[in-house]
Simulated assay, not measured.
Amino acid sequence: MCVSLAMILLLLSGLAMVVKGGYMQAKAMFAQYLIEDAWNKSLQDKHPHKPWFWADTHPVGKLWIGDNPPLYVLAGASGRNLAFGPAQMMGRAKPGEAGNTVIAGHRDTHFAVLAYARRGQMIRLQTMDGEVHFYRIRATRIVHESQTQWLTSGDESLLTLVTCYPFNALTGGATLRFLVEAEEVAPLQQSA
């Protein structure tokens, strides 16, 4: 009797974990559709649209890294926003402006593609006004989280993508960051 009860409880616990995991995956996939819809509305009227009414963010860009599927970039790199996609750090340059546009993402979801980023690879970033900015990767590097000089802005238009490192870590709390540094190029220079 006791063994049967333990087996039933174990089975129910396992089932509950599977259901919860499935719910989280479904929620994340549905959120992407809502974010895409908000982005399309923003492209039409040039105003920010929240993906759901209680959201404290909105999509600010559409990002293509090499030949990978596009990612929608959210405003504000908070933990809550990063759960749904890469996010632009506020207080940094906007795409196309002199300075450093910084976008952060999680290494095990949206920015897992950065593990394959290579010098010379192209990145495209579309803004709410519909304009597409082209960037060429000039370097990738690994830095300690305390090294923040890469955040500084200069006179050139830069895009920096940042995620935790190493990519295959099984635990959180990484102290290293993987950076992709890209410089803006004219659309005619993108294939050069």
Rank of each mutant, 00 (worst) to 15 (best):
G76N: 00
V73W: 01
G130Q: 01
P95H: 08
G85R: 00
F111E: 06
R92F: 03
G85D: 04
S78G: 13
H133R: 13
A93G: 07
F53H: 13
I123H: 06
R107H: 05
N100K: 08
L82D: 11
G91P: 11
K94R: 15
W54A: 06
G91K: 04
A75Y: 06
K94F: 13
T140M: 04
A83P: 14
N68F: 15
Y135W: 07
I65L: 02
V113A: 09
H110V: 09
T127I: 12
V102G: 10
V73N: 06
V132E: 04
N100G: 02
I142F: 11
P69C: 08
H133E: 11
A98D: 02
T127F: 08
Y116G: 11
D129L: 01
G96E: 03
Q126I: 00
P70T: 05
A77Q: 03
Y135K: 05
M122V: 09
F53Y: 13
P70A: 10
A55S: 04
P95G: 01
P59T: 09
G79N: 15
A112W: 13
Y116S: 15
V132H: 01
A104S: 15
L63A: 11
P95T: 10
F134T: 07
W54E: 02
A112N: 14
A98F: 06
K50M: 03
G76F: 03
E97N: 09
W64K: 08
E97T: 00
G96N: 08
M122T: 15
V132N: 07
K50Q: 01
M89P: 14
Y116A: 14
R138F: 06
P86I: 05
W52G: 05
G120W: 03
P59D: 07
K62L: 15
R118T: 14
Y135M: 01
F134R: 12
Q126R: 13
G91A: 02
F84G: 06
A104E: 07
D129E: 07
K62I: 02
G76E: 00
L63M: 12
I123C: 12
H47P: 12
A75N: 08
K94Y: 14
A77L: 05
H144E: 10
K50D: 00
L74C: 03
H47R: 12
R136E: 06
V143W: 05
Q121A: 07
L114W: 10
I65G: 04
I137P: 11
R118W: 06
M89K: 12
M122H: 14
A93C: 07
A117Y: 12
A117G: 09
I142E: 14
Y135A: 01
G105P: 09
A112G: 14
